[in-house]
Design a protein around this nucleic acid. Sequence first.
DNA 1: CTGAAAGCGCTAACAG
DNA 2: CTGTTAGCGCTTTCAG
Lengths: 335, 335
Amino acid sequence: MKFENYTIKDIAKALNLSTSTISRALRDSYEISPETKKVVLEYAEKINYRANPIARSLKERRSHSIGIIVSEIANNFFSQVINGVESIAYDKDFQIIISQTHESSERERLNVEYMTSRSIDGLLIALSSETEDISYLHKLKDRGFPIVFFDRIPQQFDTYKVIVNNQQGAYDATQHLIKQGKHRIAHLTSSKSLSITKDRLDGYKKALMANHIEFDPRLVKYCQYGGLHLDEIQKSIEELVQVDFDAIFISGDKLTTGYLHIVQGSNFKLQEVAIAGFTNSNVVDLFTSKVTAIRQPAFEMGKIATELLIKLIEAKHPITEFETQILPTELIKND
Amino acid sequence: MKFENYTIKDIAKALNLSTSTISRALRDSYEISPETKKVVLEYAEKINYRANPIARSLKERRSHSIGIIVSEIANNFFSQVINGVESIAYDKDFQIIISQTHESSERERLNVEYMTSRSIDGLLIALSSETEDISYLHKLKDRGFPIVFFDRIPQQFDTYKVIVNNQQGAYDATQHLIKQGKHRIAHLTSSKSLSITKDRLDGYKKALMANHIEFDPRLVKYCQYGGLHLDEIQKSIEELVQVDFDAIFISGDKLTTGYLHIVQGSNFKLQEVAIAGFTNSNVVDLFTSKVTAIRQPAFEMGKIATELLIKLIEAKHPITEFETQILPTELIKND
DNA sequence: CTGAAAGCGCTAACAG
DNA sequence: CTGTTAGCGCTTTCAG
């Protein structure tokens, strides 16, 4: 089945004008007389004419679409980011194309390739937890393709980046736990290769140090897939129980809920362990376990990243000076 | 900044062949000699050639992309559906374009228009809670445009539809509450215009009847925006408290969490009201309030809907015989 | 087996 | 102010 639309040619024929006149009239060009414009616009309206964007894209070498790659849209943080992206893209008449990596670097690479081959004009991306080699992204960028990173950013990549102050957020969370009188604070986090993992670990250490608590590496557990698989969390907890802990700072949504699921079933004194963690869930306050949340301004982040990307796309001359925007986190106490 | 790719022309020039030969070789046409193919393929590989899908789309009048419209991707049910869609689309080499209505019928219409004008090959859609007039969808369909509805479907629209057995799910939920000794069972639900609202209400009534409990219309509260705005739930609860109830059957994710948020703050005996509801949340079991969940096979639904849509898109002749697939729900007790 | 040429729908020099 | 024409990158007759 094929679905046909009117073309500019149809209008030209019907109105006894040339296609270029129609094209110009529709785009409100100054070269066209008001009368002609009126006739064309009215007729176009009447037949409900819609320009074929594919043809326009081919001509203009722009698709007016941007890609966004996240690990999971079912993650509150990312879906909120996407809402932010949407809010700007919609205004600026850009289509957005979303795809998920499910924390697989191969999937990520395929998605990027698929998207660029489908001619997106630019890319917003938060790296997967598995990703280490991003040379293909460097190549793309070097060929002039606009990329903006958010949340999970690479080191040494000359482009715009948008993140939160992860170190500060982690510091605040840890500090909060310490203030509650906790001293053996575990840290459950994502893959070592992620920027956020490093930054949050730094904040955690800094808070310990500020309170003269010695850092114990046995209390830090990494989950390669960011808690996507429950068994990586299970394993971490089992190991943590061995070394003993009275509070835990968790570095992500999936990790937090995964942790809670496991704790819920357990009989150990785990129930009394204080919890603080990065999460943008809207329902943490409904949980049986009290969780102190570090919230990220996800919507805002999506907006800013998109604005920067569009700036990059629409730049007349290559941009070479980039900054990294750092947004504040918010601590939501729950006790 | 423009981002340039190699074209078929570049290959032709480099290899001293014509563009048509290259085109054919790349598509493994029988008319091309194995040797030529080999040379072309190798060279294409070497320069990492990617065909420009925009050009191909223009020629073939197909974009190899499908649109999916939901109210909110931040809703577990919908994000799971999308994952199902993705799993099939990916295999069949279709790009998916997601957009959200935020329960606004105007947004829905704009999204559909935007997507079709951007040449998607087909559309998957769950109607917004506000939607009443879908004549524009009828028009699209009549012009041969493939549409598949899921979850929130219209009456009288000749096309494939995929839903769950909402009546049965509602029946099971209500029955479960009754078995717990509850007799004044409220029903908090979405907009009157949605198919799922009607079906679930029917199931609820049927269960009451089967247990010789009289139906009390004052116990049914509708939320036009499906709980997207907390105040509509607030208002419903206030009214329900007036008529008194000892259990509640809730018809959706947002409504359920919204209800819990409000109840949590309240001092009334609301805390003792038993709750059952449609939700695909992965964290209901972590909630303080015990919620009996009716889960929908969302992933499955996305898969089936996509398969049907692709069938429609690839049909050589117009399809006129349609069925509605009805999937089972699952009751997850929590007591 | 390969090439020339037309055309998908639109835009944009260039002419008039 | 309007029309002619070429061309975006690809596929596809139609010739050879």
